[in-house]
Simulated scan of single mutants.
Amino acid sequence: MFMIPYETPYYFVFLAILLIPYVVMMLLGKRMVWYQTLITLFFLYISFAGPHIQQGIALILYLIWQTVLIMSYLGYRKRKNSGVVFYLAVVLAILPLAISKIFPILHIADTLFAFLGISYLTFKSVQMIMETRDGLIKEINVFHLLQFLVFFPTISSGPIDRFRRFEKELNAPVERVKYIELLDKGTFYIFLGFLYNFLISYIINWKLMPHLQGNLLLTGSLKDLLLYMYAYGFNLFFNFAGYSLFAVGTSYLLGYETPMNFHYPFRAESIKDFWNRWHMSLSFWFRDYVYMRLTYLMVKKRWFKNRVTVSNLSYLGLFLLMGLWHGLTWYYVAYGLYHATLIIINDAWIRYKKKRKDKLPSNLLTRGLSIFITFHAVMLGFLIFSGILDKLWFK
Rank of each mutant, 00 (worst) to 15 (best):
I4E: 14
I4Y: 12
Y6A: 02
Y6D: 06
P9S: 03
Y10S: 15
I17N: 08
I20L: 15
M25N: 15
G29N: 05
F43G: 01
L44Q: 02
Y45H: 10
I53P: 09
Q54F: 09
L61K: 14
I64M: 14
I64F: 15
V68T: 08
L69D: 11
M71S: 05
M71G: 04
M71V: 04
L74N: 07
L74R: 13
K78N: 02
G83V: 05
Y87I: 11
Y87M: 15
I99W: 07
T111A: 15
F113D: 10
S119F: 08
Y120S: 06
T122S: 05
Q127D: 12
K138D: 12
F143G: 14
L145K: 02
L146V: 12
T154R: 01
T154Q: 08
E167V: 15
N171H: 11
V174P: 14
E175F: 14
R176D: 03
V177I: 14
Y179A: 00
E181N: 10
L182C: 08
K185F: 09
T187D: 11
T187P: 08
Y189L: 10
Y196P: 04
G214S: 09
S221E: 13
S221N: 09
L222N: 09
L227N: 12
Y228S: 09
Y228T: 05
M229P: 00
F234N: 09
F237S: 01
L254M: 15
E257I: 02
F262K: 00
A268R: 00
S270K: 00
D273A: 01
W278E: 07
D288G: 01
V290M: 10
V290Q: 06
Y291N: 03
N312F: 13
G317M: 06
H326C: 02
Y331N: 14
A334I: 07
H339R: 00
I344N: 08
I344E: 10
D347L: 11
W349Y: 13
R351Q: 10
K353G: 12
K353C: 14
L360F: 07
L365C: 12
L365R: 07
G368T: 00
S370P: 05
S370K: 02
I371F: 11
F372Q: 10
I373K: 03
I384S: 00
S386P: 03
S386C: 00
L389I: 04
K391Y: 12
